[in-house]
Design a protein around this nucleic acid. Structure first.
Lengths: 223, 223
DNA sequence: CTCAATCAGAAAATCGATTTTTTTGGGCCG
DNA sequence: CGGCCCAAAAAAATCGATTTTCTGATTGAG
């Protein structure tokens, strides 16, 4: 169990997970009182956590009217994906130019851990390892601003992956892609590494985008 | 007077101004109780506002120990400036490619308003007009994520300008630079516009960076 | 004399109750 | 029948009090 220094940060972590996992579905209302009872935490920390989440774009705030889980759409996902590719390419390039021995070692280590896990069998552990690996790639970027932004975009993208709950995810060789990205990074080939990373994101995103677009088309006919 | 829907958003706006203006100096402690009395607002809204500000990087939070105004340094400013140039170039390019008639008109209007104001005589009005002009330039960027990020970086940069309180700001022809940027944008010359914008930021930042570096050198000798 | 343990005092964090605002639903009038 | 207004209910926002945690000084042992 993770220990938290304050109930606010605990509430933040819990609610964040509920949003990212899709337990709080897109568009659904998030009532403070319901959360208060559910988490067995007072209203103040819950409220504060929601405030923070709303400035992280993981929750939508409507003053005096409450909080909601953000809506999703194919269009929004497309924009998110595109933003992520371009911003993370910047951070990745920086990291490749600035990273030292420690950065290299982290990448090697975390890539190994990631590839050791089976994505379907140990989904939770894989999620964490995947996040850690991608974070390690850019961790040597000197701009904390860029890194924060990348972390935020990562969360938003993970949420899309989860809430779309794809029945059949196409089995690409994601391991190979990760390996190639790591290899290019360690070879300090920024241009190639950036390209591979963006390509990786676009490939992963393409299928999800199609799913979302189809779903919207279907919903349009049904409604 | 601006009206606010809630005391939290009022507190947020007020404290934000206090941080941006330098009224709360870099490194200084921000006590909830002191603010509570100063703003005549309860502790809860003040607390919540500080929480939000800390996730906007305008306040540093130290769990169970309180809040502080962020430290400044030449190094941090350099990184901030660089991040801003690259991220805002992305947003600007998008805007130039996507902007419609309304976007063009806003730029024309806001550039006119900005150039009508004397920077030293009407400092507050100029600040607002300047912010509006720069926001208008990128406003047609479809990525709300990128726009939010740019707004955040803008605030952080404004703070540096204010807290450095430059005795003698070198009088460049800032009006001309703004005009050229607007012109290139309206001509849909993305490459040129981006270059001019980045150049504008770097020129403005260069002097500030020198000041900060000198001050640090002096402080080092004195300490 | 140094270091660690201890103990107020101060400040943050949290709670429960109160106030304000929004939403809901029923009855009334055009 | 449909729109409108008002009252009751629900929910968010705020407050004041209480609890928990940190800080800095003091004291006593080594």
């Amino acid at each position: 169990m993770e220990s938290h220094r304050s109930l606010t940060s605990l509430a933040h972590a819990r609610i964040r997970d509920m949003v990212l996992s899709g337990e709080l579905p897109p568009g659904s209302r998030i009532q403070i009182d319901a959360l208060r009872k559910r988490l067995e935490i007072g209203a103040s920390p819950v409220r504060e956590a929601l405030s923070i989440l709303s400035s992280e774009q993981l929750v939508v705030r409507n003053e005096q009217r409450g909080f909601w889980a953000p809506e999703i759409s194919a269009e929004d996902f497309g924009i998110l994906l595109d933003t992520r590719c371009r911003v993370e390419a910047l951070a990745f390039g920086d990291a490749i130019r600035h990273g030292g021995a420690e950065w290299e070692e982290q990448i090697v280590l975390l890539q190994y851990r990631l590839n050791s896990l089976n994505r379907t069998e140990k989904a939770d552990a894989w999620e964490i390892a995947h996040r850690d690996f991608h974070r390690a790639l850019i961790s040597a970027c000197p701009s904390t601003y860029l890194l924060n932004f990348c972390a935020q975009l990562y969360d938003l993208a993970v949420r899309y992956r989860n809430v779309a709950s794809l029945a059949a995810y196409p089995e690409r060789q994601v391991e190979d892609e990760h390996s190639q990205i790591a290899e290019a990074a360690l070879a300090r080939d920024a241009a190639r590494a950036e390209h591979l990373l963006v390509d990786h994101y676009r490939k992963t995103g393409e299928f999800l985008y199609q799913q979302l677009a189809e779903r919207e088309g279907a919903a349009l006919k049904a409604g």
